[in-house]
Structure formats: structure tokens, C-alpha cells
Amino acid sequence: MKDLVEIRWHGRGGQGTVTAAKVLADTCLSGGRYVQAFPEYGPERAGAPLRAYNRISSKELRMHCPVIAPNIVSVVDVTLLDSIKVAEGAVKDAVFVVNTSKDPKEIRTKLSAEQAQKVFTIDATKIAVECIGRAMPNAPMLGAVCKVSGLVTLEHLLEDVRKSFGKKFSQKIIDGNLDAARRGYEEVKEG
């Protein structure tokens, strides 16, 4: 792992994007790492575009400002590609993970990704509907981000999702989310 990994999440209010960033921070805490997770606070409305950020580092994190040059960009809602420059500031070898049923090659073109940048896709909404029964794509996206970043193992992630969700939700919801996170991890594909 690099000394510092910076992640930017793009989602819409109500998709669990902020929760995904929080769970990721918690999961990455192992091995003495330093973590940050924080959303961009604005009027919190369902459906409104929002950003959330992670920093994961082997050194103490002192920077307290939004991520402007992300290593990883996670797009939880594909319709944002039409309205927001999700690639803005992304580093030369940045990795994009997009929630879509479309082919990664098509998304690569849409993003005008640079040669060294990687583009992955995952049909997180479909997985969520199948596993949880609602279009809440955060758990599969979390699985996909963990896979492409190599930040934590699948087992570790699932254990943490179990712990984070266990406080608030029923066993059925927890099992659905675990399954969704696992499928996100396994089904993400590169273009």
C-alpha cells in the first residue's frame, strides 16, 4: 500500500454513501493505520448529489480538508456522470469504480480516462435489490472498493460490516448486506 490513499465518493442523498465511507474507515483501522472519513455537509436531501471522502495512511493524518487529488473515485450513482466532473483532480494512475450495468469500456470512454487510469464497473444497484430487496448500493460498492484498492481482505470487511450494521439492523438486513458486500467484491470488473 502507498503511504497515503485518498478516496472520493460521489453519490446521492439516501444511497448510504456516507455510511460506506464510515465503514471503510473503520475497516481500515487495523494494522495501526490512520483513517479519516467525512462527508461534505450541505442541505441533506434525498436525491441531491453529495461527496464523501476517505484518507487511509500509515502515517498520522493531519490534513483536514476535502480530497482534491483522489487515488480512488467511487461513483455510487451513474447518473452523476452527466452532471458532475467526477474525474476532476484524480491522479494520473487513479482508479474509478462506477455503479452501472454498462461495460467498463463504455464508462472509460465516457470518463475520458487517461491511459494509466483504471476503470472498474459493478452493478451495485442490481446486487442490492437482489440481496437486500432495495436499491441501496452502498454495501456492494464498499465490497468493490475494497477489492480494487486492496486495502482490506474480504473476510475483514465482512466482519466489520457485521459489527457496524449489527448495532442498528435486523439479522435479515445484516445477512443481505454481507451478501451484497461479498458480491460487490467478487463481481467488480475492469475495462
Binding site: 473503520d26 493505520r33 483513517v35 479519516q36 467525512f38 462527508p39 483536514h64
Partner: peptide
């Protein structure tokens, strides 16, 4: 402590 920047951000 700084509102939101610290109060609402997750850190180690």
C-alpha cells in the same frame, strides 16, 4: 473544537 471539520469527521 472545529464544527463539522472535527466534530463530524471520523478519525483514528
Amino acid at each position: 473544537l472545529d464544527g463539522f471539520i472535527i466534530s463530524h469527521s471520523i478519525e483514528r
